[in-house]
Amino acid sequence: MVQIKNLHASIAGKEILKGLTLDIPDGQVHAIMGPNGSGKSTLSYVIAGREGYEVTGGEILLDGQNIMAMAPEERAAAGLFLAFQYPVEIPGVAMTMFMKTAINGIRKQRGEGEIDALDFLKLMKKKQAELGMSDEMMKRAVNVGFSGGEKKRNEVLQMAMLEPRMAVLDETDSGLDIDALKVVADGVNKLRSDKRSFLVITHYQRLLDYIKPDVVHVMAAGKIVKTGGPELALELEKTGYAEYAA
């Protein structure tokens, strides 16, 4: 399970997260909704360990272990995964190569041997098929020439391959049409299990029609300001974020 305790973080001296606290037990899906500028994306990057964010207070515990001093790759090995709002293109690095290096990177950090090449291909084929991604796409460079929907599907594919303990989905619905949204949500739903938890960050309620959250939080000005059940999302859809504006 994941515990975020009184997290404070700033960028270039400007405080963005102002004492955020959150508990996500195993097997649960939590959604964070909030207006633009409330610090949602900052939260996802701070969880993943991106450089450039200064954590001035608080901590994040994954299964009781403080991850704050860990490099991003160490957090991945500990079981964290971030599905990016804007997946990054990496020209010249083929998807299969990238995926295999990632799996072996995690295995190495966990003190395990490299994955068998054949096992890897089988696993990849299976996950690809589930998300309707072709072999041809896997030969291409990471995210290069992928459409918006393909990029998001690719995030889910990576998540499926890496089997994290905890996945953060940062605005996974942005830029998706309804069909692509369904495919991506199906992919996520297949990965739901009692050993895995999710933090779904979104601006709109729409995504939550497809990925049903157990708990919904409202974030404003760097803090969780309200917590409720799925009905809170519906309520927000009606009333908007006006009452939470900073």
Binding site: A48, V93, F98, A102, Q109
Partner: peptide, 27 residues
């Protein structure tokens, strides 16, 4: 920095990620 962080967030060590990016640059 973007692809570097992306790769690291997938479990690829910084040194390996840099090497992959440089290889791709040269290839």
């Amino acid at each position: 920095q973007e692809p570097l962080f992306y790769m690291q967030s997938r479990g690829i060590e910084e040194k390996t990620a840099k090497a992959l990016l440089i290889q791709a640059f040269v290839a």
